[in-house]
Design a protein around this nucleic acid. Structure first.
Lengths: 249, 249
DNA sequence: CGGGCGTTTGAATCAAATCAATTGGAGTGG
DNA sequence: CCACTCCAATTGATTTGATTCAAACGCCCG
């Protein structure tokens, strides 16, 4: 499947492994960032902390958690290699979310003031920074669209599809994904209960769109990324289309 | 909670009229932007168009519409005076959403290349730009949280509350708001049907939290912004709390 | 005045949440 | 090694909040 991005299902998140490497090289060249190993479970930063640095993930997996004053909270995003973290802190000098490490990896620490200085010297660096922020805005909107317009099963399938896409963009294997999140976390991210996530995954497995690749059921096998996207479309297709498709077989 | 900032209900969108004016002044000073009158109904830009400029609203109201390849679409945000538009186009050189004018006003046109040049000269301008992008990221996350964790009535109330807040930040009167959107548009924005929006508004009116200030029912009177926030909290409070409150009266 | 859209409201239906019971792994300690 | 606990996950039964379907109303505009 997916040799060189044949069907661009995810408009906002076109990004190549090459581009990520270039950005990292640019950062290394201009800023010699501190490299910090971050361990699963620990926070990279917390909401309310004073903002003075951004992070770029070189490896590992981080979740962004947004909380309201009244206690409601939601996983607002997931960050993979090459993603920047901490933009939300720029506006008023303190982070607005928690960033919690889900899978151990390496984060590059970018002092914001130093970055601004470097941006003045390097147009390429400024462009990379703006592109990263722009992408985050576009991506957030896309996930908002998914959460508000798709039924539960499709939302889960789309979630996995996006994950696979993120791996593909980074040149990683996409036939298998390790979720590293509980059903409750996934449900919170997607705006549904853990039971609904579990049922959706069971249905995806029944339809052979995914397979369970470990006893803990946190590792999934993905026979075909296209089949995942197709499942999403099938969920939102009007019923007569399904009937028609069944008839035409 | 929150020592300074007395009743900061909306963590992300703290912004003063003063700050908006300063940003506009900064833009005027460095870029002499073209000023464009935009009329209700017309698009400011469309998804897919080549990106080479940003916009800053000086007056009027604009909705941002995000569409998926399969036809699903959603109002992803609303832009008021002082808000920037078009960030989502930076990453890959074309806008990802439509920006449609809901209320006639004036947009300042900022050529992106020129802006980058000016940012090199003016640290204040670069800071303002980054702050605007940062705020957009934070705000989008907050609205995602609302949409995914609040029941329908609360979502509508929160929507109005945010609107009032936006007006308040800009020094405008908040005892009355002109929606300029149909129930269907509001519903699409909030992830619910137009009937649900209508029912929610009726309930808010029944509880005296809002009033209908015009025959068309698009203008609302807001006796108290705090009552709106209180309504949201009441919606998410566990039932026994309500009972207890009723008893204690 | 009449047509068309936007809105409201009611009744029926449905998808997802809630409640509840069970299974299964991972880890602990006797 | 097994018994035990704890937590995650699954699955079923039931409830519920929101959607859907339908009808009626009101406003604006030609």
């Amino acid at each position: 499947m997916t040799p060189l991005a044949p069907a661009d299902t995810s408009p906002a998140s076109r990004r190549s492994s090459l581009e990520i490497n270039q950005t990292l090289a640019l950062l290394a060249q201009h800023l010699q960032p501190q490299r910090r190993i971050v361990h699963a479970g620990e926070p990279l930063y917390r909401a309310g902390e004073r903002f003075d640095r951004l992070f770029v993930l070189n490896s590992g997996l981080v979740k962004i958690v947004n909380a309201a004053a009244d206690g409601r909270e939601q996983v607002a995003g997931l960050k993979f290699r090459g993603d920047w973290l901490g933009f939300d802190g720029i506006a008023d000098g303190s982070y607005r979310c928690d960033a919690v490490v889900l899978d151990t990896g390496e984060a590059w620490v970018i002092r914001y003031e130093a970055l601004l200085g470097a941006c003045v010297d390097s147009r390429a660096l400024m462009t990379a920074l703006h592109a990263a922020m722009s992408r985050e805005i576009a991506r957030d909107r896309d996930s908002m669209l998914s959460r508000c317009t798709l039924p539960a099963d499709a939302r889960v399938a789309e979630f996995l599809s996006q994950w696979v896409n993120s791996l593909a963009c980074r040149g990683l294997r996409t036939d298998q994904i390790a979720l590293r999140m509980t059903r409750a976390e996934i449900g919170n991210y997607l705006g549904m209960t853990l039971e609904t996530v579990s049922r959706a995954l069971s249905r995806l497995a029944r339809d052979q769109v995914i397979g369970f690749a470990s006893k803990g059921r946190r590792e999934l096998s993905i026979p075909s990324a296209d089949a995942l996207s197709a499942f999403v479309q099938r969920c939102i297709a009007p019923p007569e289309t399904i009937a028609a498709a069944a008839t035409s077989c």
